[in-house]
Design a binder for these strands. Structure first.
Ligand code: SF4
Ligand code: SF4
Lengths: 161, 161
DNA sequence: CATATTACAGATATTTAATATCTGTAGTTG
DNA sequence: CAACTACAGATATTAAATATCTGTAATATG
């Protein structure tokens, strides 16, 4: 069970957008260059964020992406579900119905306790992701990147917005 | 992000094995028929359980699988990790190192808070799975399957062990 | 208005992982 | 010995992830 790398990309892009000065847009090609990932493919992840209403976009030169809500109002879960979907990680294929001993006139099968346990764990995962907001990142990430790189990056971005 | 159906199969097989009378083995082909899944492929999942030490096997006629420990001592997490692996669902590909502004003589990158949040959520998922034991299932599942089918199934199994 | 630039949907291609089957080996039972 | 089992390893098939391409409509700038 592996999350797609769209998740990592989307989280990083959201973190960058959260640090953008008010009102400015950053284009997909810059986000792609900054993270060293294929531009056309990253665009798909960004479009997923857009469809989920997490970012808003504008066209033309100086166009691009910016957050649609304050970083405080966007959780990790919002981003993960935007690109990865809301479907549970456990999908029950109802193999019970294949039981050769199954009585013909049985009442309709309802989800059992095996599925319930798996779905509960999936919920615990999502609940955990919901606890952290984009705003929680801002201070942290800046402490983790070395000052020289951070400074350069801020300038690099400021030249492109 | 989707769990392989090996997980569902392994859980169902473990549930059946947990209900088996003491000391008896049930062969892979019977487990496959009971669940209506391809025998050779299910065998892979069962072998994963074997390698994880959750079941023990014996060869020859009357051979097959049985639990290696009491149902009370086997958690959902044991089974899920046996077939799905212990690797986190979030794999960091270190895209930070692609930053064109990154200073050359930077100190080695250590995992950041983005990864920490994702790993924490993965841990929450595993913690939840660890809470339920195979023994918790026994009563539940029997209440969920209709009595007629349950009775037939018990007989069906008893003829094959 | 003309041009360059953007997001975006949809189609397509490539690569990787999941699913499924097959083969041969060795241990076990009667 | 004969029939049956688990099991590892190779192989084939199918689905999904990854990546690219094309065309369209919107927007800013000169
Ligand atoms: S018994 Fe539970 S997990 Fe298994 S197929 Fe039925 S609902 Fe799904
Ligand atoms: S360690 Fe953090 S910043 Fe670096 S690539 Fe992983 S998630 Fe991104």
């Amino acid at each position: 069970m592996q999350l797609r790398n769209h998740v990592e990309w989307a989280l990083h892009c959201a973190a960058v957008l959260a640090a953008l000065p008010e009102g400015h847009y950053l284009a997909a090609r810059h986000l792609a260059e900054l993270h060293g990932v294929p531009r056309e493919y990253l665009a798909k992840a960004l479009q997923a964020l857009s469809q989920a209403g997490l970012v808003e976009t504008t066209l033309g030169p100086t166009g691009g992406y910016r957050l649609a809500r304050a970083p405080h109002a966007i959780t990790f879960l919002d981003i993960v579900e935007a690109v990865e979907g809301k479907a549970s990680s456990f999908e029950c294929t109802e193999i019970r119905k294949n039981n050769p001993c199954r009585a013909k006139n049985t009442r309709p099968i309802k989800p059992c306790s095996i599925a319930a346990v798996m779905w509960k764990a999936d919920k615990a995962w999502r609940d955990s992701l919901r606890e952290t907001r984009l705003s929680d990142l801002i201070g942290m990430v800046q402490n983790e990147v070395d000052p020289e790189t951070l400074k350069k990056t801020i300038i690099w971005i400021s030249e492109r917005i």
